[in-house]
């Protein structure tokens, strides 16, 4: 076990965990931040997507010992009141079915739009390709990303 000080959603948080622990389980099991989801554990499904210094990153394979001073943003910290343009667009388009993958989808989309505010359909698809939606809300996700890009 070792102590790590992490910058999560603008707040310093101290955890005492095994250095090999992925950030996903630090967030979920130790910090009660359960919005970041467990889907596959091998960075294939995107359900655990967070922002690491603004870049969409899979938390399930990001070990706590490698994070250092980097800033972590989770779905809980994307906006204070849940009114980030991407979150608003998701509600407007009524995207979710089961909803489980959507936090990861939103984190990928928001990091992507920060870097590419006016994407083409093809660019949206490629950016979102690492996030699986088993319910098949892909067409609505694309609509929501385009709506968020407009606002």
């Amino acid at each position: 076990m070792a102590t790590f000080t992490l910058n999560i959603n603008g707040k310093e948080q101290e955890v005492d965990v095994d250095p090999s622990t992925p950030i996903l389980w630090v967030l979920r099991d130790h910090l009660n931040l359960v919005g970041t989801k467990f889907g596959c554990g091998i960075a294939q499904c995107g359900a655990c997507t967070i922002h690491l210094d603004g870049t969409a990153t899979r938390a399930c394979m990001l070990t706590v010992s490698t994070v250092g001073d980097s800033k972590i943003t989770t779905i809980e910290g994307l906006s204070e009141k849940g009114d980030h343009p991407v979150q608003k667009a998701w509600l407007e388009e009524d995207v979710p079915q089961c909803g489980y993958c959507q936090a990861g989808q939103i984190m990928t989309a928001s990091a992507f739009l920060d870097k590419n505010p006016n994407p083409t359909d093809g660019e949206i698809e490629m950016a979102m390709n690492g996030n699986i939606c088993r319910c098949g809300t892909y067409t609505r996700i694309k609509k929501a990303v385009k709506l968020a890009a407009k606002s």
Binding site: L33, V34, G35, T36, T74, I75, E76, L78, G82, Q87, W90, L91, D94, P96, G99, Q102, A103, I106
Partner: peptide, 9 residues
């Protein structure tokens, strides 16, 4: 549940 889903509750 939309708001809870998009805010990670």
């Amino acid at each position: 549940d939309g708001k809870k889903i998009v805010t990670g509750k």
